[in-house]
């Protein structure tokens, strides 16, 4: 078997074959695969996490409710953690001057897709999963985030039933900025904890 048969084309052939077999057996409907791909891609976006964050920055009472019971609080914004295959518990943790939070799933790739969209490849990599719990400060430095030595770092390890999201610190000089504009400052990495905002 030549090397040409390995890699992407071989596996795409195998996936096509299994898909056709399952369609023939009535386990997958015609058009269902494309519909489910579209659903997945439309099912979440970091814009949702950014909206939650901006609201928490401008509304201290919302922030308190969010940190106490995130599943209930995000419903106030029309968001939910029940869009996937099962309802997931959400815990939101907020960065402060003294503490920085970062999220991982050491066992697989658990991630709040509804609030952050599909996860980046590095989040699912064994490299990130193995290292961020052993040397969070070093890993954050590689992402370009240098934290003061006195900042405590908490690493939150997601599981099959629980998801985490980070509320970054509100940047300096944003007093009076409208909520939508604040949301525009928030990045997916900020919501995972590998960037400051």
């Amino acid at each position: 078997m030549s090397a040409d048969h390995h890699g992407s084309s071989a596996i795409s052939e195998r996936v096509r074959h299994v898909e056709a077999l399952l369609e023939a057996r009535g386990l997958v409907d015609e058009g269902e695969i494309d519909r489910r791909i579209d659903e997945f891609l439309a099912g979440g976006s970091p814009a949702n996490g950014a909206r939650i964050t901006a609201r928490a920055w401008v509304d201290p009472d919302f922030r308190d409710r969010l940190l106490a019971d995130a599943n209930a609080a995000i419903r106030e914004l029309g968001l939910s953690m029940s869009g996937g295959l099962q309802e997931q518990r959400l815990k939101v943790v907020a960065n402060t001057e003294d503490e920085h939070n970062v999220v991982v799933c050491t066992l697989c790739s658990c991630y709040p897709i509804a609030l952050l969209g599909p996860s980046p490849a590095w989040y699912k990599s064994e490299a990130y999963r193995s290292r961020v719990v052993r040397d969070p400060r070093g890993v954050l430095r590689e992402f370009g985030l240098e934290l003061p030595a006195g900042t405590r770092i908490s690493v939150w390890d997601a599981s099959a039933e629980s998801r985490y999201m980070v509320v970054p610190r509100r940047p300096e000089g944003t007093d009076g900025m409208p909520e939508e504009e604040l949301a525009g400052l928030v990045t997916r990495k900020g919501l995972i904890g590998t960037a400051a905002v």
Binding site: V15, L27, I37, G117, P120, A127
Partner: peptide, 28 residues
């Protein structure tokens, strides 16, 4: 494990078959 690699574009899928695998799993 090797260094963490950040991709510039970070696509959800790197090939069509990956999207099909995700959808097949959801269907089953």
């Amino acid at each position: 494990f090797p260094a963490i690699v950040e991709e510039p574009d970070e696509p959800a899928f790197h090939a069509d078959w990956e999207a099909h695998v995700l959808a097949l799993n959801a269907a089953l």
